[in-house]
Amino acid sequence: MFDAAKFVEDAVEEIKKQVKGKAIIAVSGGVDSSVAAKIGSMALGKNLVAVYVDTGFMRKGENEFVKNLYGKMDLKFIFIDAKKEFFEALKGVADPEEKRKVIGEKFIRIFERVAKEEEAEYLIQGTIAPDWIESGGGLRDTIKSHHNVGGLPEEMKLKIVEPLRNLYKDEVREVARYLGLEVAERQPFPGPGLAVRVMGEIDEKKVEIVREACAIVEEEIEKACEEGLIKKPWQYFAVLLPVRSVGVRGDIRAYGYTIAIRSVDSIDAMTAAYTKLPHDLLEKMATRITNEIKDVNRVVYDISNKPPATIEWE
């Protein structure tokens, strides 16, 4: 079986061997990057600089959460507001692969800027097995380019260090628990964030709609878990579809967006079964989403498994 203590011991040694001088670590507030940051700080101490980029595609309340989380760790923490840059870069980009690549490159350019200021040559990332598997290469087909692997630009100055490359999420969680990290049980969130939960071209309004819808889905599912009505699914979120349909609100015709709710059960994201959520809970989420978000008048539930679907829609 998997031995978290042994893993941490080996990973710390490996980073000490690989990294000369300073390194930066890209953090998002998720489990993977938090574990990589903790292991990195155990290996490098003050020579590790954590960089968090607010892309504008983060979950509701995420910026505050991350500031608080890294405030408690023994490393240098840099917060970068890059909302404008990211929205600017994605103007006119509708293809999911292109979106991921634009985002991947933007991240790297920002990290390169920080690394230059900090005089660091290394970039530590919380890349895990599904990221590079799905990104493809060689014989392996590209399912989607993960921003931290397939989305990397060809030309880059930083040397990449990936201590969690051979782990899956359930194993990363075991390491997180072993290290006593409070984020151990957080649900996964994609690196490109809400940008891949708005189908097609994004704009600030659409991102705001899906952010609110995701928050409602999270709130209601987590409440149902606390009340013991359901077992916590692996991942649960909302997707904004580029489809509008006719509705009626207060005797007036409406022509609004459609939100898809997605909730799946998995251990490693390599296969996933849709969650058999109770209808009362689905109804509650649909009612809240359509009542609280003005531009949405229809909600559907995604009942596909992976394969053939993937977990995120893009």
């Binding site: 097995a129 598997i133 799905e134 060689g138 014989l139 392996r140 087909d141 399912i143 051979n166 899956y168 490693d268 390599m270």
Partner: peptide
């Protein structure tokens, strides 16, 4: 033997 599958690494695991 890796023939390029999505689950080659799962077999290893």
């Amino acid at each position: 033997i890796d023939n390029g599958g999505q689950w080659t690494h799962r077999e290893w695991r």
